[in-house]
């Protein structure tokens, strides 16, 4: 991973965490992870997946595991869907994002119940809906900004 590439991801993480502070409950690192999956560089994907999982689990208040499972499902769903569809279109990301938001509802609802944390289905549903809506646009913006760095790398 080149210095320019590392700096780009660092700035992306900085911006994503800042946005997460403004909109509680949402994951703005996920579009970056999808972007990394699309670039198909194994080392970069693993590194970013580990770093993003660590950051999300660190700032959260549940036991370790939810984000790891969600990101693993993201990777599996992405590779499975790529064998059927064109993996770089906006529509593809929109559908993937909707699917992942549904998965998020199931995972975090299940883990909250497992950890005996009372959770509000309506609040989680709202967050998942917002996540499904925002992820494609964040991905599109990051993708457009990334083009320059990718060509240099």
């Amino acid at each position: 991973m080149s210095w320019g590439n590392a700096c780009w991801w660092l700035i992306y993480a900085f911006a994503a965490i800042s946005m997460q502070a403004a909109l509680p409950g949402l994951d703005f690192l996920l579009p970056g992870f999808i972007l990394a999956l699309q670039e198909r560089r194994l080392f970069q994907t693993l590194l970013l997946g580990a770093a993003f999982t660590m950051a999300q689990e660190g700032m959260g208040s549940m036991f370790f595991g939810g984000t790891l499972l969600w990101y693993a499902v993201t990777a599996a769903a992405f590779y499975a869907a790529c064998s059927l569809f064109q993996g770089r279109s906006f529509l593809f990301i929109f559908l993937l994002s909707a699917l992942l938001s549904g998965v998020r509802y199931v995972i975090f609802g299940f883990l909250s119940t497992l950890q005996d944390i009372p959770w509000e289905p309506a609040l989680l549903l709202d967050e998942c809906f917002l996540q499904a809506l925002l992820t494609p646009f964040i991905w599109a913006a990051a993708s457009a900004l990334r083009r320059g760095v990718k060509h240099e790398a």
Binding site: A21, P24, L26, D27, A55, Q56, G60, S61, M62
Partner: peptide
């Protein structure tokens, strides 16, 4: 520094 952040923040923190 911040209120609850991220999908993993189920508690009021």
């Amino acid at each position: 520094l911040a209120r609850r952040m991220g999908p993993n923040a189920a508690l009021d923190t």
